[in-house]
């Protein structure tokens, strides 16, 4: 049993920290690619900006500005800074529900990105700055895992993390593998950037060796059972957590679980050859839509349910 508002806040903490981590990683890959004297930087910037829904081609030419906007833009609601501020604001509202260890990690991150010296720190070593944010976000998740009870609240937070992750990965893959983007997917540099943005380079190499093949990459990021950033891994977790959260619900109210189960089955029993033949675009679009539907259903089921259903007769 927990307050509906609290569950909602915990869910959003999960979504925002995942978003912050993903955006930081996109920016780091852009900045690191910028060091090479090839067109890698422009390629990486194009993928990253398209993945966050900013297809303006002129911006990808100025990598540093683009990275800065991703990280610290106060106006853009989709920047690392705003995501962290919102995660922390949600955490503040449920301060009594998360452990001190977990809260302090997140509060520390917030204090870092809102520090008056943040612009200077970023200008000094942008990639280093962002890498530290990613490392601190890992500490946050570790602290949550190690100190919070793995009960309802924790499951709401993790559902938020995995729904966000599945959506972000779907969007990133769409940029590289949707039917219109297919030619670009053959570019070695672009594929390496993609693996780095998905934090998947080393795990991929272990499975497929240094054979950078678009088909393998798509398979790995969509269907791998063990890699924590594959879409299949995320949908599996979403279903698992929702199954726990819905245990005490009656049939017709467990809509979120039904949707999650359907999405997971779609990935679990998918045929790689069929996807290859039909193009990944439709599957990726479906993942994004289904995640949005699960999000809605969760809100209807756990937070904004109609009162008539639950008043004593």
């Amino acid at each position: 049993m927990m307050l509906a508002r609290v569950a909602d806040s915990l869910y959003w903490i999960g979504r925002y920290v995942e978003r912050a981590e993903h955006l930081s990683r996109l920016a780091v890959v852009m900045l690191n690619a910028n060091l090479d004297r090839t067109d890698a930087a422009a390629q990486a910037a194009r993928i990253a900006l398209a993945a966050v829904g900013d297809p303006d081609p002129t911006r990808s030419a100025q990598v540093l500005q683009a990275a800065h906007a991703l990280a610290l833009d106060k106006e853009d609601s989709g920047s690392v800074m705003i995501s962290l501020a919102r995660a922390r604001e949600n955490a503040r509202q449920v301060r009594d529900q998360i452990t001190t260890e977990t809260w302090e990690r997140l509060n520390l991150l917030y204090l870092r990105v809102t520090d008056p010296g943040v612009e200077e720190a970023f200008a000094d070593d942008a990639a280093g700055f962002l890498q530290e944010i990613i490392a601190d976000l890992h500490l946050f998740k570790g602290a949550a895992d190690a100190t919070m009870s793995h009960g309802e609240g924790w499951r709401f937070m993790l559902t938020g993390i995995y729904i966000e992750r599945a959506q972000l990965m779907a969007r990133l893959l769409e940029v590289c593998f949707s039917d219109a983007a297919r030619p670009a997917a053959n570019d070695h540099i672009a594929l390496m950037s993609l693996l780095r943005m998905a934090c998947a380079l080393e795990p991929y190499l272990r499975v497929y060796t240094a054979d950078i093949n678009p088909r393998f990459i798509l398979e790995f990021l969509l269907f791998d059972e063990d890699f924590p950033r594959s879409i299949r891994f995320s949908t599996e977790r979403i279903e698992e957590h929702l199954a726990h959260l819905s245990r005490r619900l009656e049939g017709e109210r467990a809509d979120a679980l039904r949707l999650a189960g359907r999405l997971n089955a779609r990935l679990k029993y998918a045929d790689a050859d069929e996807v290859e033949a039909a193009g990944a675009g439709s599957l990726l679009a479906a993942v994004a839509d289904e995640c949005a539907a699960i999000h809605e259903a969760m809100y209807e089921t756990f937070v904004a349910y109609p009162l008539e259903l639950s008043l004593p007769a």
């Binding site: 049993m1 927990m2 307050l3 509906a4 508002r5 569950a7 309802e152 709401f156 959260l245 005490r248 619900l249 756990f302 937070v303 349910y305 009162l307 259903l309 639950s310 008043l311 004593p312």
Partner: peptide
């Protein structure tokens, strides 16, 4: 939520 002079809170699993 107040209903019939009883006070409840909205939880994820209905009113309490």
């Amino acid at each position: 939520v107040v209903h019939d002079n009883m006070v409840y809170m909205r939880t994820t699993n209905g009113l309490r």
